[in-house]
Amino acid sequence: MVESVLDVLSRVPDPEIPVVSVVDLGIVREVRDDAVVITPTYSGCPATLAIEAGIRAALDASGHGDMKIETVLSPPWTTDWISEEGRAKLHAYGIAPPSRSQVVCPRCASTDTEEISRFGSTPCKALHRCRACGEPFDLFKCH
């Protein structure tokens, strides 16, 4: 039961970065027999409502209409919860995955990169530029 629900959820895309799922991002914290427990990324992320609606629709469509969705704030979401698979998908999509050491250009893999702005197109991203290939790119911020 829990496995089949997780399988359903692993196909629910993040509305802002549809290449990764809500499971990849660590938004799904727990699947119980009667409920899916989720946590918001940033307090003000506008995708939060869309994520809940996406999960609701996926549960309903897969015969899990009785399952509730619970939201918890604690412990606070961290990018450490993004799965290895999620990180690989972000990189392939052109978004540098969060890194506590080197930021790697998702286009040419150079580490010669610089920050343009710590605030980007969504709360979770910062704008960077690669000095090697010259391309600007998004970095998923460590959080």
Partner: peptide
Amino acid sequence: LALSNIGLDLI
């Protein structure tokens, strides 16, 4: 972008 993002966090 920065001021909008800060505002969004606060809201």
